[in-house]
Write a protein that binds this DNA or RNA. Sequence first.
DNA 1: TTTCGACTGGGCAATCTGTTCAGCAATACG
DNA 2: CGTATTGCTGAACAGATTGCCCAGTCGAAA
Lengths: 156, 156
Amino acid sequence: MAIDHLDGRIILLLAREPRIGVLEMSRRLGVARGTAQARLDRLQSNGVIRGFGPQVDPAALGYPVTAFATLQIRQGQGPDVRAHLATVPEVLELHTTTGTGDMMCRLVARSNADLQRVIDRVVGFDGIVRASTAIVMENPVPLRIIPLVEQAAEET
Amino acid sequence: MAIDHLDGRIILLLAREPRIGVLEMSRRLGVARGTAQARLDRLQSNGVIRGFGPQVDPAALGYPVTAFATLQIRQGQGPDVRAHLATVPEVLELHTTTGTGDMMCRLVARSNADLQRVIDRVVGFDGIVRASTAIVMENPVPLRIIPLVEQAAEET
DNA sequence: TTTCGACTGGGCAATCTGTTCAGCAATACG
DNA sequence: CGTATTGCTGAACAGATTGCCCAGTCGAAA
């Protein structure tokens, strides 16, 4: 589960050029092919690398508006609300949290006007008491993991 | 930029089995290899598929705690704050938003105690007036895109 | 000293990729 | 009504990659 320097380099390399094969990878890393293969397998079975699914851009799909919604849930309605939100395609992720709200979800919509429809659909459910929404304007730091990987790899 | 049914199936297939090649893909889809190739190329140059970077699990790297922080920024300090947050590896993403706060970021940490350190580092910057943090307890809906892709593909 | 795990370097058959070609059908255009 | 254009099919080929196996080296732990 600990990541060493070579593991770090493997992840960085894959992040930069995801389509390269194991052979090319081993050449770049200066190790034998079997080693690269074994390391990669280990990272995957460890769960450090979950997979290589395609990263789809919602904006390119026609959903350029992103928002975060904080929800307050009626006591005991948690499971129902979860199930409800899971059925809404525009809900990209959902977390239960401590703090002000009880849940927090990421939404996308086709437009600001469409966002209203999405919010209505999300909130129009009995167990949800209140919702407050923050619309995303800019995304100065897109979801990233590389800096964390580098930090983890150096702490060997 | 519009996604048709075949594009949708390609994305779904890639999401399920990211490592399959174009040839195998064309067999599963029942189309010629060239077609699958062309569609995939198009999806990528369209920006619909951004890439196939490894999906790294922060928890497996030793960062099992996730939190969302809402930040209030002093007037005109936005760019400085952005630059500051970009240097913190534990900041996985950053958005500027409308609503209560001015920015919202996703953080990870090694433990609840370590989260304090991360927050101190994030907030210990001049342009940040106030921060409120919500710690994630559960993640009933992990970041997903498939339902949205299916919806987009059906609206042909 | 012995054992064990990790890495190297090599070989082999099967498979896939990149690329090119010709043919075909539907569609847009002058 | 001809004529490009576009998207798809089916096929071919050389070159590269994969999955798999094996023998040998090296350092650390027992």
